[in-house]
Design a protein around this nucleic acid. Sequence first.
DNA 1: TTGACAATACCGTCCAGACGGTACAGTAAT
DNA 2: ATTACTGTACCGTCTGGACGGTATTGTCAA
Lengths: 197, 197
Amino acid sequence: MHGKKLSSRERILLAATALAKEVGPAHLSLDAVAARAGLSKGGLLYRFPTKAKLLEAVVEEHLKEHDKALRAEEESRKGVPNSIAEAFLEVFRSEYRHKEPPPSGVLAALAENPEFISPIRRYNRQLLDRMQAQSNDHASALVTFLAIEGMRSMQLLDCDVLTDTERDAIMQRLAALLRGVGPDSTDTGNILETSGH
Amino acid sequence: MHGKKLSSRERILLAATALAKEVGPAHLSLDAVAARAGLSKGGLLYRFPTKAKLLEAVVEEHLKEHDKALRAEEESRKGVPNSIAEAFLEVFRSEYRHKEPPPSGVLAALAENPEFISPIRRYNRQLLDRMQAQSNDHASALVTFLAIEGMRSMQLLDCDVLTDTERDAIMQRLAALLRGVGPDSTDTGNILETSGH
DNA sequence: TTGACAATACCGTCCAGACGGTACAGTAAT
DNA sequence: ATTACTGTACCGTCTGGACGGTATTGTCAA
């Protein structure tokens, strides 16, 4: 197991996320975060001088972590068409397999001030651009992105209704979409070969 | 224009939703709702004895409205395969065309207490069951549901990154999926294995 | 017809507690 | 000396909600 000792910054960020889920995003208090992270309120405010800074860091950290995982998956697929969309799918699959909890801290940030999630908006837009730039079927890439965002959002909003079977079926169908199987695959059966222009 | 005479209940619910968006879901206060709805706090508390009851009503109202729109679309498609998924898609399209604001009140309810959205979870589960019960291609219905939920969630989370062109492309692709365009839709189990050739 | 009462739909005030943030003195390790 | 805190005390503000009062309308028996 990862019996690592965490930095206080990490402990604070984890505590914030855990508490946001437990008490509801609107009731995340600095006192509670400090207590949960195992330090005093003074110590917490030493690291993050305001609640806003703390929540910004929560969002930033989430983004950094997700990007790291995505780049890693991308690396192992260089050159393959739709590699980014496939990597995105795989990251979600992996998150799910490892039962990673939803980033409820992000929800707390949003609840506090909707502006706090604009880094995520920027990131997602860039991601979408990169996806489409190396895809020969924009619509499929888009649908994949959206369906996965849908699953992620459902988890984030504590509103997941899918069975494991359904989730598997979806992921398989998305993988098929990305490989060009599906509508008009009969007359464009050479997608894989003609991808490199 | 429309009828002007709204009941105080309606005014309150609308005020709550509008304010949740303006001040951030976590900062929705009874005082502000009362002021916006044009009555006193006492009056508000007369209609909704607690904040919890108010937020429950917000969620319930949202669900009722959505269900009404969905049933109407369904009605005009009786018997057609995938009619529910198609109706679901059409409801979203219509919401978007009419620029209906996202149900930010629901977000305030979630921020206050994640339990408040469990009616939505139940509703979505039932909807999914109904969708699949009259579909011959479960995976397509699921993907449609998810992609639309994805778009809806992005709007709700103030995180929409799609251009109008992209949204159109997605909806067209989803419509095609639902019509069963493409290869046989009976068994998609081993598509992955047969893709490399 | 009238007087008594009751239900509906609020208004205005007050308050205990929670929360974000400040201030500051002290400590232990580097 | 600096960094990274701890611990306590405190302040101003906001907020949910309780409470008592009020205006209007309706009901119904005498």
